[in-house]
């Protein structure tokens, strides 16, 4: 019985340790996830806080100065939209009309300053609706 207790004790230590790791990791990595209309419908969108926003790349909105790192575009959902300024690499699946998740923060002008774009690599060309 003593051995059994010892095993349970070791097991408990592991569970507590793993739980602690999870908690610490969670605090540093939890990010709010909105769709464009949820965000624009809100009274006080979280300024400065890192968020993820899901929307569709609006037609005619993408401006990339060739040979630069900055990309401006708008993501929309229904008739709501949100301007985005992105710095850096753009995933290949980023394309007008595609669904994207943009990670970044809202600045004072209400622009989403993005540092990461996750584009849904639709394994299919869904005809634009």
């Amino acid at each position: 019985m003593l051995k059994r207790k010892r095993f349970i004790f070791v097991g408990l230590i592991i569970i507590v340790a793993a739980g602690y790791l999870g908690f610490v990791g969670f605090q540093s990595a939890a990010t709010y996830y909105y769709t464009v209309s949820e965000l624009t419908g809100q009274e006080s969108p979280a300024y400065g806080q890192t968020i993820r926003v899901n929307g569709w790349v609006a037609p005619g909105s993408v401006e990339q100065e060739p040979g630069s790192l900055t990309l401006r575009f708008t993501i929309s959902e229904g008739n709501q939209s949100l301007p985005v300024i992105h710095q850096g690499v753009v995933p290949d699946a980023f394309k007008v009309g595609n669904e994207v998740v943009v990670e970044g923060y809202i600045d004072q002008n209400g622009i989403l300053q993005s540092n990461n774009i996750i584009a849904k690599c639709a394994s299919k060309y869904v005809p634009e609706r």
């Binding site: 793993a18 790791l21 969670f26 540093s28 939890a30």
Partner: peptide
Amino acid sequence: GVKITVGAPFFNQVNGPI
């Protein structure tokens, strides 16, 4: 009622030691 995603740091911090 809010979606919260956890990013790569969570997975790395938990799974690295494990």
